[in-house]
Design a protein around this nucleic acid. Structure first.
Lengths: 343, 343
DNA sequence: TTGAAAGCGCTAACAA
DNA sequence: TTGTTAGCGCTTTCAA
């Protein structure tokens, strides 16, 4: 025994009742006298009785908790999404268990299996950039574990999905740069196979096409670690600097890639770096403070977390197997600068 | 039943053995024939058997998991500390359950009680700024729950503590500003009663005193929500702007307070804001990118997380009640700018 | 209205 | 070497 806890048995013994009577009194069963109920409740209150959720989980095969897997929590998008998740979960009586994959497939699998074995009632997941093969998830899903994808989703599993309008975000961010007069626009993005990567790239391409700017594959750079490793961006920026025609602008598809890019420029060619125009996905509060400034595409992270959680709880609490699934697409927002006199 | 799981019973039935034999085979007990062991292990592997940790927790009254309570995960200091925590915990066979209090006492209590009732084997906690009364923690600690404080600690509970050298950090950050030639130096900090607030304030005062600069209480501003609420800083900056003698510099004790301050200046008086010298505690990677730049005091967050976890696991696994506790103080680092030609 | 007993998955003391 | 049984905390038939 690790440390003292009051159990139903203690109450039963103290009151000269059976455990089942105490149990019924505690959960307000109707087949019990008001008097007994009162006595039990009062005593339980007095000794600060708390039911043991582990025993309940074992019995009910559920835990009133939901598992969350994201690649990293030190990311404004995910931490905001998690706040959205918690806001709904707590109000619906669920606890939230947060885990991070660090963009590592193996860690993702470990996390998911741990969550599943701990009887989470459902799973919210944004895939790691290494996760090509998600058969491990599929088999859990097939066994009946409710799963809702958000942000980085997969076609391989048929369930609810909540994503930002990545195409729109990519399109607007790119078109903004075009409207600023730029024609040579690079694109730094995540690992190639991720859903968000594809969608944002499509938006980028569509904007170029609309304005009759040729697509140049040399301008597209993939980051397998989503900007978490500075060296990755240093190498990419070096590549860029070697190009015959250096771009005048970059559309960056991810928060950390943006900041790592700025840091790389600052280190490798601050002169050029201070002139280049950048637009990018980020949910940072402080992007406004950066030099150079970046024009921000913001995702409704909090709402995405909320919505994903609502859908998940719906799945969990559904009396019948759910067979109709939807993919919710929430609009991104291009944050245009206030044209103030003092910048 | 939520979803299909293989149990030891299934294996026993399939193999015509008793559950205890299977159990022993699985956990490699010596009192078992190699043959039986082989058969069981092979079959378990084949059907992908996973022991049910909930049943284990119920039986052993422990869970091989540790609970973490921080005020917010969207904070570089804490997310780095959590990475340190996870690095040690995983290697020692523990899982980590992360919760956030949002600087809210009630939420902190809920989180801790949930963690405790879920049989976490120990607790790592940095107190919320609202948490004056920690008797709820004390009673858990008295019942035998191992607790290690980090960052924001309390004297009321006698246990291991891991903190940064906040005095030193405050002293160096302030003295740096003094050496830059500033004499009127404000100090923005957290809620007054937090340990980190006291310690950093002492460092600030000591630096002033060393350089014979009088301490002006009007220059010290407390943020009860640690900069998480922009309005709080807007109000403080407004106050500052009204002062007869505006400070030329500010030492800021917290990450979010720094960024919220910069945003407030940008909004309220960008002219003045761009001239003021700022030094502050932050573990952000991107502070270098800010305009104006801030001189950074960095805490060894990752190492603090690691150390706290090592101490906690030591407590958890100790065969005897531990009565000797220590407070580890890790040095902060003042990040001086490379004097480059191009800034 | 209350109690006795079984069972959730697993381990371990005791028996065989 | 293997099986039987009790028990972790709780709920829930079934009996009284």
């Amino acid at each position: 025994m690790r440390y003292e806890t009051v159990t139903i048995k203690d109450i039963a013994k103290a009151l000269g009742l059976s455990t089942s009577t105490v149990s019924r009194a505690l959960r307000g069963g109707y087949e019990i006298s008001d008097e007994t109920k009162r006595i039990v409740l009062e005593y339980a209150e007095k000794i600060n009785y708390r039911p043991n959720p582990i025993a309940l989980s074992l019995k009910e095969r559920r835990s009133y908790s939901i598992g969350v897997v994201v690649c990293e929590i030190a990311n404004n998008f995910f931490s905001q999404a998690i706040n959205g998740i918690e806001s709904i979960a707590y109000n619906s009586g669920y606890h939230v268990i947060i885990t991070q994959s660090n963009e590592n497939h193996e860690r993702e699998v470990l996390n998911v299996e741990h969550l599943a074995s701990r009887s989470v009632d459902g799973l919210l997941i944004s895939l790691s950039s290494e996760s090509n093969d998600i058969s491990y998830l599929k088999s859990l899903h097939d066994k009946g574990l409710p799963i809702v994808f958000f942000d980085r989703v997969s076609e391989e599993i048929n369930t609810h999905k909540v994503i930002a309008n990545n195409f729109q975000g990519g399109f607007e961010a790119t078109e903004y740069l075009i409207k600023c007069g730029h024609k040579h626009i690079a694109h730094f993005t995540n690992a190639a196979h991720l859903s968000i990567t594809r969608e944002r790239l499509e938006g980028y391409k569509a904007a170029l096409q609309k304005h009759s700017i040729p697509f140049n594959p040399d301008y597209v750079k993939y980051c397998n670690y989503s900007g978490q490793i500075q060296e990755e961006l240093d190498a990419i920026v070096k590549d860029l600097l070697k190009l015959e025609k250096r771009p005048e602008a970059i559309f960056i598809a991810q928060d950390k890639i943006s900041t790592s890019t700025l840091l790389a420029f600052k280190k490798l060619d601050p002169e050029y770096g201070s002139k280049i125009a950048i637009s990018g996905f980020t949910n940072s509060r402080v992007a406004d403070l950066f030099c150079p400034e970046i024009t921000v595409v913001r995702q409704p992270a909090f709402e995405m977390g909320q919505l994903a959680t609502q859908l998940l709880i719906q799945l969990i609490e559904s009396k019948y197997p759910v067979t109709e699934f939807e993919t919710k697409i929430l609009n991104t927002q291009l944050m245009l600068k206030q044209l103030s006199t003092n910048t």
